[in-house]
Structure formats: C-alpha cells, structure tokens
Design a protein around this nucleic acid. Structure first.
Length: 424
RNA sequence: GGAAGCGUGCCGGAGCGGCCGAACGGAACAGUCUUGAAAACUGUCGUCGUUAAUAGCGACCGUGGGUUCAAAUCCCACCGCUUCCUCCA
C-alpha cells in the first residue's frame, strides 16, 4: 500500500510511477478525492461522537428526575452518530479500495516499458563451449539416475519429479551452502510454514494478481505458499520491530508450491518450471533510507552464490511494467542454459520499500523514537531450478557432471557425478 | 475428537455497564543523590487517526457483529491459547 501522505503531498510522483508501469493514472485522482471525502465524513462523525460522549456522561451524573429527558436526547444523538459513522466507514472503504489498487512507486532509474524492456546490468563468466553434443538436464538426469521425471509424473502428474541419489544430495548441498553463506552474512535461518491463512496470503498481496497461481485447501481454508516470502513478510506482522542494531535479516527455507495455471505448455520439459520445489529466500527488514543499499547487497549475495556454483550469468534491471505491484525495483540474475541457448532466471530480488510493510503493519522506532514503517526486501539465494544450470554447464563428454568446488564439502568431497557412480 | 478455562498496554496482572485508555507491580527512559555504579526517591512511560499542533477531539482492552442514552465490562459468532481426557508422526 502506498503512503497516504505522499498521495496528499505529491500526487504527481505517484502518477508518474503509474505511468512508468503502464498502470492506471486515473486512480490517483480518484484516490485524492476519495481521501478528501473520507476526511470530511470522519470529521463530521467525530464531532457528533464527541457530543454523544459528553451527553452520555451527563446521564451518569444526573439526578433521577433529570435522567429520562437526557436519555431521550441521547437516543436522538445515537441515531445521528450511527448514520455519520456508517458514512465515514463507507468513505474509508471506498478510499481503501482505490488506494490498494495503486502499485508501489518505482524507484528513479528503473527502466520504463514492459517485460522486454529490461536493461542488462552486467554479464559475468564464460559460457561453456562444448566440443560434443550437449545433453539437456533431462537427459543428464536420466543418464545419471538423479532426476526421475517419469515416476514423478506417475504419482503426481505433470510438472512433478523425484530427485534421486546425487540429485537429491546435490540440492541439499546447494541449500546448505547457501544457508551457511547467509548465516555468515547476518541472516537468521528460518524454516517456515507453507500453509497459511487467507489473511496472511492476502496481506502479502499474492491473492490479487496471482490468485490462480496458488493452491488452496478448502477443507481447511488454508493456502499453500509459492514462496517463503509469504511467511517471512508475515513474520513481523503488526509488530514494532527493533532496528536500532541494524536490519533484521532472515534466510527462509521452504518447499514452494505453484499451480503454474497461466503457463500451460511453457517449459514443460524437465524441472525448470514445476509445481513443487525448494527455495532458500533472503528477507530483510530495514530502515527505508538504507533499502537501496540493502538491495545492492542482496544482489551481491546472489552473485556470490552463482559464482560459487561457477555459472555464467547476467543481471537484469527489470522494467517498471514488469514489476510486481509491491516492488519498487527488481533485479533478476539469469544463468546461461546451454541447450536452450539463452539465459534463464535463477534469482530475483525486489526492493518493496515500505509498500509491503505498510500493508502488513510492520514498523520500527526511528532515532527520534517515533514509529515509522519499515522497508522490506527479498531475494532468492538458491532454488531447485539451479540444478538445471549446474548440470548443463558442468557436463562432460561422457555425460558425467563436474561438481563445482565450493559444493564439494557439502557432498562428502565428491567431485564428479558419473553414470557409473550413482549413489545408493 | 470430548471437557473446562482464558484472551487487557513492553511484561505480569486488576477491572466485569457510566467516575476506565484502563488500578497495582515489574521493565525501560530521564532526573535527584553518588567519585562512579547499585539502592532509594521524583518524573516520563501504548498505538492509530484527524489536525499547523507532543492543543483539542475521535478510535482501539483477541477479531467481527449485536443490545444500550452509555460496553474492556452484557449477548452472539469466529480466531487463538492453556489444562485435562482421547489419540498419537
């Protein structure tokens, strides 16, 4: 949710942002007048209410003879108050309905335009140059007996899979490496619930545009989360957190569930786009003035992990029109996938500034001791999808896959996964 | 799944129709005293909205409804927690 004060003081800034996103500019007008109306109605109600409070106090103090008359007067007032209160509530509801549709104000410098208008920030690493015919991760997975898609499909349907032997261990190794790295950098590890109540899902903003992306369990009225961000953002909901010692940083590990409703037919091969995967997510609560520096930091952490996995990648600055409604800026890191001859997203980091925290009512006490809305940021540190890039980039002519050095300590020193040496 | 009880401010804990935004205790913060600290004493000490305003006014005692001139206090529903029984990964 945007800052209502910004709406009052500088509606043009919000308009400009909406324009950059290709969003609805008219909403800003509507919000301003809805706000004015609400404040008028509120004042009318509060004035009447004050009168009523005073009158009710009189009744308590009045003598027996005076009471009936006062009570009669009170009844009249009560009626008016009720009406005024309903009018004020309605005005507030109308205001909220509009304000909630306005998306986060994009940060200056974010490229304008839609999905294809991203700006490449950098390219890092060298793409592999195979002198043999490269296998894709599905072929490698089968050959090495580490990804079993056929049986995944047999028991759960399309977009499901088993990770097996070294495949399973590789994923856990990657997660552990990421978690170690995060812990060294001041992130507190958190294993989060993956079933959440409707309020939490709505509060984090996922129930709007992404509603059909989400698994829902009607018998229990619970939603399966598509990312631990939901739980991590909700963690400090309605709290006044202490940021005096610096930001609060969490590394949340969870299984993620996505219906992939809008992507039928896309990336159907392999484990690039699946209904269930694991993810380690960074999440920061921070003073808004430091949010951009923190954003750079999260991106740097992601790059460090990609480099540890020895993956060629590029970083893109997502265009305004392709940002989620909570994000004020988003960087994606995309790894090279040789058999697709293109970069594919492995990580994403968003600076949500105060937008998400305002919605979830997460505040902190600033230097003056006043409460202020915190900023939140999130970023991927590792996901199952990374296996695709690791397997494909590090494959060798015989179908074996070299394990990046940094991962070996987490795999008992194993250096190569080869067809003959699959684990038990 | 069955039974009972409970949800009040940073914490503990009173209040059970008007005098309650809320006693009392603790914590915290500031000051006095002290070479300094502790102790003692004094003061401050919830959040939000409206507003130029730390003035006033309004809202909030789990959440949402209701009764009443008036609700933290009564009624209803929901959510959560605790204990006991049952059951157990």
């Amino acid at each position: 949710m945007i800052d209502i004060n910004l709406l009052r003081e500088n509606p043009d800034a919000i308009k400009a942002s909406q324009r950059a996103r290709g969003g609805d500019e008219a909403l800003v007008h509507q919000a301003v007048s809805a706000d004015e109306l609400w404040r008028r109605e509120l004042l009318a109600f509060e004035t009447l209410r004050a009168e009523q409070n005073a009158s009710a106090k009189l009744v308590g103090a009045a003598s027996k003879e005076d009471r009936p008359a006062l009570i009669e007067a009170g009844k009249l007032l009560a009626d008016k108050v009720k009406q005024a209160s309903e009018a004020a509530d309605a005005a507030k509801t109308a205001l909220d309905a509009i304000v909630w549709q306005i998306e986060n104000v994009v940060i200056e410098g974010v490229p304008t335009g839609g999905e294809e208008n991203f700006v490449v920030v950098k390219e890092v690493g060298t793409k592999p140059n195979f002198d043999f015919e490269a296998r894709d991760h599905v072929a490698l997975g089968e050959l090495l007996d580490i990804i079993d898609i056929e049986r995944g499909t047999k028991i759960s349907g399309s977009r499901f899979y088993f990770l097996k032997g070294w495949g399973a261990r590789l994923e856990l190794a990657m997660m552990n490496m990421a978690l170690d790295y995060a812990a060294k950098n001041d992130f507190t590890a958190l294993i989060t619930p993956t079933l959440v109540r409707p309020e939490v899902m709505a509060g984090t903003g996922f129930l709007n545009q992404h509603a059909d992306e989400i698994y829902y369990l009607p018998a229990d009225d619970l939603y399966l989360t598509g990312t631990s961000e939901v739980a991590l953002a909700g963690y400090h909901r309605d709290e006044i957190i202490d940021l005096s010692e610096g930001p609060l940083r969490y590394a949340g590990w969870s299984t993620c569930y996505r219906r992939e409703a809008g992507s039928a037919g896309r990336d159907t091969r392999g484990i690039l786009r699946v209904h269930q995967f694991n993810k380690l997510e960074m999440f920061s609560y921070i003073d808004p003035v430091d949010s951009e520096a923190e954003h750079a930091k999260l991106l740097a952490f992601q790059e460090a992990m990609l480099q540890a996995c020895e993956l060629p990648y590029r970083v893109i600055d997502t265009a305004a029109g392709d940002l989620g409604s909570s994000a004020a800026r988003k960087f994606d890191a995309e790894a090279w996938v040789p058999t697709q001859d293109q970069y594919r997203e492995l990580t994403s980091t968003s600076n949500c500034t105060t937008f998400q925290a305002r919605r979830l009512n997460v505040r902190f006490r600033n230097a003056e001791g006043k409460t202020q809305t915190a900023a939140t940021l999130n970023g991927t540190l590792a996901t199952t999808r990374w296996l695709v890039a690791i397997l494909e980039n590090h494959q060798q002519a015989d179908g074996s896959v070299r394990i990046p050095e940094a991962l070996r300590p987490y795999l008992g020193g194993q250096e190569v996964i080869s067809p003959k040496v699959s684990a038990k």
